[in-house]
């Protein structure tokens, strides 16, 4: 095994909190990619829901990893600092004892999990819902603009809203005359 691989493995094994922090971020990237792929390929979700769910999923992944790093890294650092400076102390454990390092490591692991829970379970869903709504509104706005009727003698422009450029046949004409949108 290469020196680099050995060093990485030993570092990860020594600093469990940092290892869990990094692997969680990478895991979320993979999960988000899979979920987005799942929505895109799911024929049972209608297009209107997809317009909300796809940006929600992509936003979820980006915001999740961003917020996770933004909250968890400082939380872990501050936990470590508080223990080093004596703002958090342990009963019958001095700084020189081997137990101290284990407790500090454990506190960092808890900080990393707490940061993940706060960022990915609370802040990310709120942020992604906001982003998803903005994206959905944008998509709907674009749809309205592209649906603007163009003059075409072979097509009835008023049908475009519901029938996607259906040619003007008799059945369509009957539907046209019954249409609630008909304003003459």
């Amino acid at each position: 095994m290469s020196d680099f691989a050995q060093k990485i493995m030993a570092k990860f094994a020594d600093d469990n909190a940092k290892f869990l922090f990094l692997t969680a971020a990478f895991g979320w990237f993979l999960a988000s990619a899979a979920q987005t792929f799942g929505i895109i390929t799911n024929k049972k979700i209608d297009d209107e829901d997809k317009k909300f769910l796809i940006p929600q999923e992509i936003g979820d992944g980006l915001v999740n990893i961003g917020l996770y790093a933004l909250i968890t890294a400082p939380l872990m650092k501050h936990t470590q600092k508080m223990i080093d400076k004596g703002a958090i102390t342990f009963a019958n454990v001095t700084k020189d004892s081997p137990e101290f390092d284990r407790l500090k490591g454990g506190a960092k692991v808890i900080a990393s999990i707490a940061g993940a829970v706060i960022s990915s379970n609370i802040l990310t869903p709120i942020a992604r819902n906001k982003l998803g709504t903005i994206a959905q509104r944008k998509a709907l706005h674009q749809k309205v603009q592209t649906k603007a009727p163009n003059y075409d003698p072979y097509y009835q422009p008023l049908f475009q809203k519901n029938m996607d450029r259906a040619p003007l046949k008799m059945s369509n004409y009957i539907a046209f005359t019954r249409s609630g949108n008909l304003k003459i």
Binding site: A91, L103, G106
Partner: peptide
């Protein structure tokens, strides 16, 4: 440790386990 938080034995046992989570 002026005004510090002192963790009791139970919390310390939990942190010791957490180090190997």
């Amino acid at each position: 440790n002026f005004g510090a938080l002192k963790l009791n034995k139970g919390a310390q046992n939990f942190l010791t386990k957490a180090d190997n989570f």
